[in-house]
Design a binder for these strands. Structure first.
Lengths: 199, 199
DNA sequence: GAAAAAGGTTAACCCGGTCAATAATTTGTC
DNA sequence: GACAAATTATTGACCGGGTTAACCTTTTTC
């Protein structure tokens, strides 16, 4: 049963999310009230909060797919001989190749505007950081849970974050993703190598 | 001029902070309203917000002294021959020796209760994380600002965080700080060594 | 087609945080 | 010691995020 009800639910969900992001991009996160969004989606305020627990989640639910990704990557590492740092490095490099937005290497104006919104709004940045912390925790568990695992997880997540930020900053300065791709690729390799070989 | 005014200001500041922490420890952060704190300190709500920009800062202002500490440590590293990772490792080890609360190795009930409050309240943890991020940024700048510096800074701050958390968790389980000190010391050394030598 | 279950609406409320106007104090000066 | 000026606190109102409860509508299910 696909359910008529389920479809309507999906519909309002999308209407809310799209209305929210449209308004946020136009006016800025803090200049749009949740009431504005609710009325724009023809819904009442309590209903909005039944779909999204907080105002921030209207934006950040897009990152839900990537939750615990790092932990999944090392868990699914088909070759157990490969070290987790290699697995995550390769995963990041593959992301660069396909210009995955999470690597920061994406010059689509819509993507750039969205990331600018997230990174320059403290409330959003802050909540996103908590997602990253959850990722780190999951990775630490996947690596065994002991202290060394926690250290490794923290460093791996950190280098990923640093690289993504760097790429995004270069994109905001106007460079094309295709042009910067080789440099980003080389930088990622050296960064992960520094991690594996020692600082 | 010590200023009579300045003294009164300090007095209200302390009264607010102490009333807040007392109430928070009794009832929990979310179960105390800022109005409660303001009335407990014989002050009005807008006045409270002139002393502390947010409710969280009533608790976290105690960390203000440690802001940008990592950056200061490497900047003040008297021996320029020593690598920044050694400088920060030694600084952390020294903190362990004096049972500095920021290392997590402190079994004073008041300190434990305070950290429990901070780490188990999402709003506080989140804001504290932002302070840590600012530390990391400052350290990255102090290390030169380039990509390698950013990676190094991120990893150094991360390992510090992991070690502190670990120590704090052991303390909450009831072990005495004196008893755990040697283990904490050894773990810190191996963790920093892993960083320097490669994961 | 009716009962029941799910979801939406309205309206009121709480809390964190801000603002504008007013009142109280401290300070520097005579 | 008193006075004008500048700080600072107070009050009361307000805004926006988020929750709750009572009521109503719609979809499902039998």
């Amino acid at each position: 049963m696909t359910g008529l009800r389920a479809r309507k639910k999906q519909q309002t969900h999308d209407a809310l999310s799209e209305a929210a992001i449209k308004l946020f991009l136009e006016r800025g996160f803090d200049e749009v009230s949740v009431t504005d969004i609710a009325t724009a989606a023809n819904v009442s305020k309590p209903t909005l909060f039944k779909y999204f627990p907080t105002k921030q989640d209207l934006v950040l639910h897009r990152f839900a797919d990537h939750q615990h990704e790092a932990a999944r990557v090392v868990a699914a590492s088909s070759a157990p001989s490969a070290s987790p740092v290699e697995a995550l490095r390769d995963h990041f490099l593959a992301g660069l190749d396909r210009h995955d937005p999470v690597t920061g290497l994406n010059d689509d104006p819509a993507v750039l505007a969205f990331y600018e919104l997230v990174f320059t709004t403290p409330a959003l940045e802050s909540r996103l950081t908590r997602f990253v912390a959850a990722d780190e925790e999951a990775l630490a568990v996947a690596l065994g849970g002991h202290l060394r695992a926690a250290v490794t997880a923290a460093c791996l997540i950190s280098v990923n974050q640093v690289l993504s930020r760097r790429n995004w900053q270069v994109m905001t300065s106007g460079m094309a993703a295709d042009v910067y791709h080789p440099t980003a690729y080389a930088e990622a390799i050296t960064a992960y190598k520094a991690l594996a070989a020692g600082l």
